[in-house]
Design a protein around this nucleic acid. Structure first.
Ligand SMILES: [Mn+2]
Ligand SMILES: [Mn+2]
Ligand SMILES: [Mn+2]
Ligand SMILES: [Mn+2]
Lengths: 230, 230
DNA sequence: ATTGGAATTTAACCTTGCCTAAACTAGAAT
DNA sequence: ATTCTAGTTTAGGCAAGGTTAAATTCCAAT
């Protein structure tokens, strides 16, 4: 915790922090190769940057083992995440963007907007708690709702659930999800499920049934709601 | 005209082109030192970049003499200018920004927005022809209205005019201009003028009179309207 | 206990954009 | 014509952020 304050962080650094934050959040720690993979750069580039980030007090590095964000690093990561999610929300709500188009735009804009602009957008949106993909929006001072959703594939046949969150990166997948009438908040019952990672069938409000492949279903983060089965 | 197509231009390059365009537009040509001054960097940095831009076919350089944008260079410059001005308009119209706050924000955002986003903003604004400071907005294919305004200091006593355009860089000046009730479109009569670069007095609609220092008046771009004097 | 890989780090190098100090014009002023 | 100088360019450096190739190191499997 030393040079981390002062200037703004570079676009590169901000993207590193965001990626590391996510890896840490759902894999426990962030490996060099995973970071490289996520940023689509070569592993030695990561080693180099990691050194600089450690010197800046944004993370701690145990050689050959991986990396963990410091308080300061997490705080920065959450700041970017907030920007990203507010921007995505704004583009959809106010500028007629489609679900599947916003991510790329946000990926660039998140580094260029001021705090003031983010606040204006946030205000125009009515200070939403979640973005259009269902992801929680961190507060200005770095609080974020801890999520405890389960993949749709974890729900038993006969149980009911609500879709809560979908990934925002894969544009084609989003397009398809939307075409099924699925979006965060939609309630459903699990009607059937085939073994061996087979597809599952759900019934939506209104009675329409949809068959969903395992891989896709596994990417749909859901909340169990009072089961209506047996 | 060779490498200029392909990737997007860097933020630095885009700002160079914009600055050169403006210098060329109102000083005929763009000198190294003027560019350096406008970008707040050292002259040798400009020499270096100029070489690269010339190689990229964005401008032509005559040693020790200055620089002129090629067609390609102008086109790029106008593209950024369009972005800048639409962004400024959008921030004011849709996000409650003040006149004097938008420039800095736009200076960063202009490099991060996509063509699609600019078009959405443009559409939300109703495809305006001028930005809030009165500057013409280039079309998507690089056309721009040629302006032929005169500084307020060129108007004779007794003549009438309309304020058409003000500079967007100086935040404090904008704040002050607004406090006088001046903004593009406002009509006035020149009531009096002191010699030796002294202040001039104008009468606004409603009869209120304001005294304006020479330097400020000289920065206010106006259009003469049917004089109402003798 | 040894060893073979996969992951990681180091080494060496590149481009972009900036810097300062030194060398060089072009043109104005003698 | 010569000289002076302001403006420009060259030379040499530096930091950021990337690359590939070579050296390490951890760990899992014999
Ligand atoms: Mn996203
Ligand atoms: Mn990004
Ligand atoms: Mn501006
Ligand atoms: Mn800019």
């Amino acid at each position: 915790m030393k040079a981390s304050v002062g200037k703004g962080l570079s676009r590169s650094i901000e993207d590193y922090l965001k990626v590391i934050y996510k890896l840490e959040a759902d894999s426990g720690s962030a490996q060099t190769s995973a970071i490289a993979e996520a940023l689509a750069i070569a592993p030695p580039s990561v080693s180099g940057m990691v050194k600089r980030l450690a010197e800046a007090g944004l993370l701690e590095h145990s050689r050959y083992r991986g990396v963990r964000l410091t308080e300061a690093g997490q705080h920065q990561a959450l700041r970017i995440l907030r920007r990203h999610r507010i921007i995505e929300s704004y583009l959809i709500e106010q500028l007629e963007y489609d679900w599947h188009n916003v991510h790329q735009e946000a990926e660039r804009l998140e580094h260029a907007v001021s705090d003031a602009l983010i606040d204006r957008m946030d205000q125009a949106l009515g200070r939403p708690s979640h973005d259009p993909h269902g992801a929680p929006i961190p507060t200005p001072d770095g609080e974020i709702e801890t999520i405890h959703y389960v993949p749709m594939t974890d729900l038993d046949v006969g149980s009911a659930g609500q879709l809560r969150m979908v990934g925002d990166k894969d544009s084609e997948r989003l397009r398809f999800i939307a075409s099924l009438g699925l979006r965060p908040g939609v309630a459903f019952d699990v009607v059937a499920r085939q073994p061996f990672h087979g597809p599952l069938t759900i019934r939506l409000e209104g009675g329409r049934e949809e068959v969903i492949g395992y891989e896709l279903a596994n990417s749909l983060q859901c909340e169990r709601s009072g089961g209506d089965a047996k």
